[in-house]
Design a protein around this nucleic acid. Sequence first.
DNA 1: ATATCCAGTTACTTTATGTAAGTTAGTATA
DNA 2: TATACTAACTTACATAAAGTAACTGGATAT
Lengths: 102, 102
Amino acid sequence: MDQSICPRFEKAMGLLSQRWTGLIIYQLLSGPQRFCNMESSIGVSGRVLSERLKDLENEGIVNRAVFPETPVRIEYSLTDKGKSLAPLMEEIEKWSQNWLEV
Amino acid sequence: MDQSICPRFEKAMGLLSQRWTGLIIYQLLSGPQRFCNMESSIGVSGRVLSERLKDLENEGIVNRAVFPETPVRIEYSLTDKGKSLAPLMEEIEKWSQNWLEV
DNA sequence: ATATCCAGTTACTTTATGTAAGTTAGTATA
DNA sequence: TATACTAACTTACATAAAGTAACTGGATAT
């Protein structure tokens, strides 16, 4: 294994190539979301969603806000770092529309 | 699980979120590569590299060319569909440079 | 008292990936 | 003739990641 690939690029790929991470970010680009909402709209299991949201929070990509209502409301949203992924998501969208069949 | 996410986008994400797929495409953007070369430059095991290259060939993203030399030379390269991922890779590169530490 | 809701967590199963050795074909070397 | 070397895989086995479904806890509503 030599040094040819930029470590930042590798890290970014490592993030995006985690299963569900891309879809989670994509969903959050349309606004803050609740846990149960993401679970059903993305189709990811609670076990993994919980894990991914923690990772993304640790990476500074996702923010977690607690509203002590009844029942408790917790909103996940994108930080600036997270929002800065919008152009990348648009590229994926464009490519998928130009090159993929349904 | 509702219908909110475009199925093409989901498929694109499904491809990119396979471990190693992004790095394989990224490496191939710099030109045709041989199996043993990718194995060492990316750091992926032969078992998975073989699997990924077959998948990408089936998707029409990668082309496999056999040169009957001794020992045999097999070159993997990107098809037009594969090359069309360049802008997306550039976005990942840009984002990683702006937002990630090494 | 029982049930409901959200946001998770836990235990257990299935799938994906890593590791290291083996295979095949064509030379080259001893 | 026998052994060795190379590239490109494949196979068998071990470990890690993800899926599934049941469960928890606090606050209410029936």
